[in-house]
Amino acid sequence: MHDVIFVNRDFLAAGLLATLQISAISIVCGTLIGAVVALLRYLRVPFAARFCALYVGLIQGAPLLVVLLFCYFALPALFGYKTTAYWATVLSFSVFIGAYLAEDIRAGLQSVSPKLTQAALACGLTMPQVLRLVVLPIGVRSVIPPIISQYVRLIKFTSVASIISVQELTGNALLVNARVFEPATILSFVAIVYLIVCQAVSLFGRWLNARFAVRT
């Protein structure tokens, strides 16, 4: 029964690699989007902040699958461009996680006491310098746990990409199953792999927090 996994190990490993790749790219892009949106809202930049609030509200009310289908079917239809399932996935995941990260990062930025900002200004630092050297470092480091848990959530979400035939772990596992029909073994294996990856990232997050969290 376990031969199924061993025999198909290369194919499944390729799926896992794709899962990790998609996760990594989406995490990087999503974090960038989240940081920019968080800053714009924190600074209350006129017009941009309002637009960002709309973006966050829209994404947070929508299921990931629907955002994915929208990016894969609806947008190309509307604008007449072609896209691959892979890039539609990366785009929708980045946009999706960006909205949630933006809120977490914004909370971190707002947790920096205004008196500390005043003290930094009193030293002769300009506002951009204060943001770069004081508010951002402290703000981000104080929300490491929520950020890591969003990353773990994203890794789990990559399974949804299988629905539009992206060849990540879940997709490849289902393809193998379609051929050999051993769902119990295959799905258990897949579940265990996700479990290991998620726990590893969570553990890394705990170490990161212990090492870098700002104590006041």
Binding site: K156, F157, S159, Y194
Partner: peptide
Amino acid sequence: IRSVPLLI
């Protein structure tokens, strides 16, 4: 339970 994706 939480470490396994809902789809799975």
